[in-house]
Nucleic acid binder design. Structure first.
Lengths: 209, 209
DNA sequence: CTATGTGAATTTATTCACAGCA
DNA sequence: TGCTGTGAATAAATTCACATAG
């Protein structure tokens, strides 16, 4: 790389995990190397987009050949800082929260949910997998446990309050499943996943029938 | 509106449900009208973005005053074609699928999940809410039931096959929760929600500590 | 010859800035 | 005066096109 520092597009960062997923998939199929066009097939992104995205971080391929899958996967993990295990906490152990707690897809990115909280006395004390659900009023005590990530799956009305408490408890980023906009100090990255929101725009694209 | 037809940005469509959610929230707080800057506060989008987005579809506000909340909400519902009830089908009633099935947030967009399928014999025949889980091999029979939307929450390996079957069964759009890219004829809009994917980019934004 | 890496061109999206209406 | 609606300006992202390395 000729080391011209250029601003890295948000969209590029959003796509890197997609590439990583594609690489793992291809690797599981027994492949060792892959071209940008082959990867493009797997992930639904065009090939020069992929090359451009990667070029922000270095030269990872061999011209005329393609990319070594293991090597590229490692590079992407490195860029995304997925190298170390990250502890996460879940707040809100309702239907959606419980699904998140048992979701197997987090492990490959080195995330481990190590604590869960809920406000419902009936849930407090219960065990889901190896996690005992704690009283939401004790979130503050999390601080000692060095948790990097907060996952919010509480009702809309409690979401902002929960976010504030998580920030106080020292999380560095928040994944929000509550259907609302939440704010946090700008050093804390917040990503909101509102499943109804993605649903709501589908009819727009449907033919009038 | 002076009726110059301009291409409507994808991003605008993505934001309309966000505005709608903000309007409903504001309405619940007892407000009747709202300015673009007030709405901007609620939804975390800047005010001229909101005005520009709306301007693609018409003139819905009053200068010097703002927008009538009910009226604007109605207009947005109309643009998004949320006026009629849409039937949806869920395929895959695991943890995530079940959470989707019980998710309360779909109703405000006029979606109703009216059928659910699974491959697991232990689940087939069981009832979740008022839905009886059917055998996944019977998806083809859906065709008669005029379902608009397919929701996929099956393991990665079965996702594409499920999508193909849903397309054959006549769905007009697909919401995919499986962690993989799926293809469909281009008349069928596919939106993928991969919760691990959104998680995976958070460490990038975390300070090195 | 093949597939990468990348400036340049193009397209798409956002923000500015202000005219114009209530 | 206050806030909308919108061209024009700017910024961001994508795609082209090709020189370059293996």
């Amino acid at each position: 790389m000729k080391f011209k520092y250029r601003r890295i597009p948000e969209e590029t960062i959003r796509r890197l995990p997609v590439y990583l997923r594609g690489l793992l998939f291809s690797s599981q199929m027994g492949h060792r190397k892959i071209s940008s066009s082959e990867l493009a097939e797997f992930v639904g992104v065009n090939s020069c987009q992929i090359r451009k995205d990667l070029s922000y971080f270095g030269e990872f391929g061999k011209r005329g050949v393609g990319y070594d899958i293991e090597k590229l996967a490692k590079e992407i993990r490195n860029i995304l800082k997925l190298g170390t295990v990250r502890k996460a906490v879940l707040v809100g152990a309702g239907n959606l929260g419980s699904a998140v707690l048992t979701y197997p897809g987090f492990k490959i990115y080195n995330f481990a949910i190590t604590a869960a909280f809920d406000a419902d006395p009936k849930k407090i004390g219960k065990k889901v997998r190896d996690i005992t659900i704690e009283d939401v009023r004790n979130i503050a005590k999390l601080k000692k446990r060095k948790i990097d990530l907060g996952i919010i799956a509480v009702p809309q009305a409690d979401a902002q309050k929960t976010a504030d408490e998580l920030v106080k408890a020292g999380v560095k980023a928040i994944l929000n499943f509550s259907p609302c906009y939440i704010t946090a100090p700008k050093r804390i990255k917040v990503v909101t996943i509102d499943i109804a929101m993605d649903l709501a725009r589908l009819p727009y694209y449907m033919p009038v029938s």
